[in-house]
Amino acid sequence: MKRMSWFNTVSITLGFVFLYLPMVILVVYSFNASKLVTVWAGFSTKWYVELMGNEAFLDAAWVTVKVAVLSSTLATVLGTMAAYVLVRAGRFHGRTLFSGMIYAPLVMPEVITGLSLLLLFIGIGLDRGIFTIILAHTTFAMCYVSVVVSSRLVSFDRALEEAALDLGCTQFQAFRLVTLPIIAPAVISGWLLAFTLSLDDLVIASFTAGPSATTLPIKIFSAVRLGVSPEINALSTIMIGIVTVGVISASLISKRASLRQQAEEQAAVRT
């Protein structure tokens, strides 16, 4: 605890300054009245007002949310199935290929994933739009979900499922009534991860989106390529705010749940 403590304090402080200062600056300057982003000219919320009037951004945001909700839900279903197969299905033909296909997208550069999916969609003559983005996002997000879920399944006590079967459940009932409730936290964090990945993705969406559908990251990217803009600062601030509130409330909920469990366990010990 006392070992090199000045050193530890300095590294943690500098580390967090480095991690958070850029975002703090972004947030602060989103309230800058000046059009020149790097010169402070007083407080103003006009960029937010302007952003709210920007139809193109609002449309893109709506597309992004739709894509994220649909693809992360689909990815969670498929990813959970894939995790179950990886951990529980035992040996089957092509298992190595299967696990390879689960892990490969995690290390595949996005440009390659995007390119290959685009070539597929063109090859089979599928019109690019929301639907193709959803397919693309589902595919790479399901791999993340299955990694998250399978790490939980591995530590899952198999005897619980066997007990359910012993008590008369079918395989599917055992999964629905016993396994799923227990792995639910992992499934939920898998969904959240898939949702964030989808919201965040620029590269794959750029390849798979057609002229009919543009996502928010694509919009932001084409705007910031030209330089820093106060409107984008405002948009970033909103996104940072949503994420911060989301993550903090999620961690508070899980902390409260674990505290309650602790309290219940202690109460159980006392009686």
Binding site: P22, Y29, T196, I232, S236, I240, V243, G246
Partner: peptide
């Protein structure tokens, strides 16, 4: 949590924040 938190914010925005 503070180390992981930036993961959840947009990658694009984090890169963009350095432009200014």
């Amino acid at each position: 949590m503070l180390i992981i938190l930036p993961f959840w914010t947009s990658f694009l925005i984090r890169v963009y924040s350095w432009m200014g």
